[in-house]
Design a protein around this nucleic acid. Sequence first.
RNA 1: GGUCCGUUCGUCUAGGGGUUAGGACGUAUCCCUUUCACGGAUAAAACACGGGUUCGAUUCCCGUACGGACUACCA
Length: 512
Amino acid sequence: MSREVRVRFAPSPTGALHIGGVRTALYNYLFAKKMGGKFLLRIEDTDQTRFVPGAEEYIKESLEWLGIAPEESPWNPGDCGPYRQSERKPMYMQYALDLVEKGHAYYAFDTSEELEAMRERLTAARVVSPQYNSITRTQMKNSLTLSAEEVKARLESGDPYVIRVKIPRNEEVRLNDMIRGWVMVNTGTLDDKVLMKSDGMPTYHLANIVDDHLMGITHVIRGEEWLPSAPLHVLLYKYFGWESTMPQFAHLPLLLKPDGNGKLSKRDGDKLGFPVFPLNWTDPFSGEKASGFREQGYLADAFINFLAFLGWNPGDDRELFTLEDLVEAFSVERIGKSGTKFDIAKAKWYNEQYLRSKPTSELTGFLLADAKAEGLEVPADKAAAIVDLVKGRVTFPADLWKESKFMVSAPEKFDEGVAAKKWNADAVKLLGAYATALDTFEGTFDAVSAKSLLESTAETEGIKLGKVMQAVRLAVTGMGGGPDLMEVFAILGKEEVAKRIRFALSRLTVVA
RNA sequence: GGUCCGUUCGUCUAGGGGUUAGGACGUAUCCCUUUCACGGAUAAAACACGGGUUCGAUUCCCGUACGGACUACCA
C-alpha cells in the first residue's frame, strides 16, 4: 500500500519566518513535487501568548515570493481543514481523553509553584535532570496519586489541570530517521510532557501528531531541534494506535552562524552583516526593523538555489539549478547530516550568476525605476544598451543604476585623486582636439568609430593614447574606472561626449 | 550536568578499504582588457585525535576531544 505523499510546513506565527524555516519549507516543497505529492501548510498557533499580528501574512508572502506556495493552507484550504491549530482547538481534547482512558496519559493539577518546588528539591538532591517522570509523578498532584473521587471533584469544580503523557519507566524507543538512520532512546530519559495545557489548548507534541494523522501526512521533514522529542512522538503514534500510518521522519541539519557558534536565530537580525529573513519585517510591538533578502536585492531563483545547497547537493558538479531542476534532482538521501554555516559570499555569487543570465529586457525595469526615483528619465533603447554594458559587473539589481548613473547624468565633480595623477598637458591637448573632431564627425558614432577617431586624433597630436586614457575617462565620466569607455561614448553620443569634454576642460587645471 | 546528533580545504561539499582526496565560493597570481569588473588559467588550502579490524584505513568499529540541539503548561 502506498499512500499519496503529503508533507507539511508547520510554522508558528511568532514573527518573521527565518531563513532556516524557509529552507525547511523549500525541502518539503521539493520532496512533495519530486514524489508527485502535496505540500501543505499548517499554522501552529497553539501558544496564544506568542501570537504576533502580521506573521501569518509574512509567511504567506515569503513562500509566494519564492514560488513555493503550499497547495493547501489556511488561505487556500483543502479537505483537511482548518489549517490553523487555534481553529482546530475543539478536536484535540477527545484525543487526549482517549489516551487517559487507555492509561497512557493522566490529569495533573500541580501549580507552577509546586512544579518549581519539585525542581528545586530535585536539584538540591543532586538529581541530574529534574523532570516530571515515572518516579517524581508519584509525589505530585495528579490522577495517579489522587483518589478517583478527588480527581472527579477537582475536575467538576473547574480546578485548572493539564493532561500529561505517561511515559513508561524503561523502554527502548527506536525511530528510523531518513537522514540519520536508526536512533534509539530509552524512555527513562524522557519526561511526562504536557499534552493539554490548562488553557484548553494542546501543546505542540499532541497537536502535531493529531493533525499530521488527520491530514494524512506521510513524511515529517523538520529541523534537527525536534530530534530529541521525536521518540515521544513515536510513542504517541503507538498509543493512539496509528503506527501503521506513522509518517517517516527526516530531521534536517541546522543552519549555523558563520562562525559556527550556535544556530542562526531570529535574534541575529542584521547583526551578522546579512539578513536572516526573506522579506523586510517590522516588529509590530517594538517597531524594530529587520531587513530581508528580497529587499536587499536577492533574486528569488538565486535565493532558492543558494538555500537548496545549504545542506543538500545533487552529487555532481552542477551548481546552478532552477526550482524545476531542483525538484528533478532532489532526494532526501543526499541531505547532509552536519550543521551548515551560513556563507553570504556564496549567496552573492548565486545572485550574480542569475542576474547575468537574465535577458536585458527583464533588467531594464530595475534601472528605469531607480532612475525615476531620482527624477531622471531614461529612453528605453538607452536603458537597454546600458544594462547590456553593465550587467556583467553587478551583484544586485540596484547596482545597475549605481554603475551607470553617470551615463544619464553628466558628472559635475571629478575624482580628485585621479585628476591629480592623470590630468596633464597632453590630455588637455588631446581632449580639445577630440572634441573638435567630434563636432565635424560624420557617420555612425559607435564604439569602433569613437575609438578610431580618438586614435587618429592622438596620432595627429603626437600623443600616446595609453598615457592619457585615464584622463579621457575622467573627463567624460568623472571617475577613474568603469565599463568599456568606447562603449560608454557610443551610448552617450558624440554631442554629449564633446560637451562633457569641454566641461571638464573648463573645470580641471593641470597641476605642475 | 543529562540525553541525542554531528566532525573532509577558511566556507558549502564530492568521494570512499588501495585516489595525485574531486568541485564550487572566497583568497592569491597570471592572461584578456589602453581602467575596473566579467571571462579564462594557475596556486595555496582538508580527511579532529587515539586505539583497534585489515596486507592496507580518511573510509568500518570503539573510545577521546571538539561542536551543536534539546532539557517549559514555546514551538
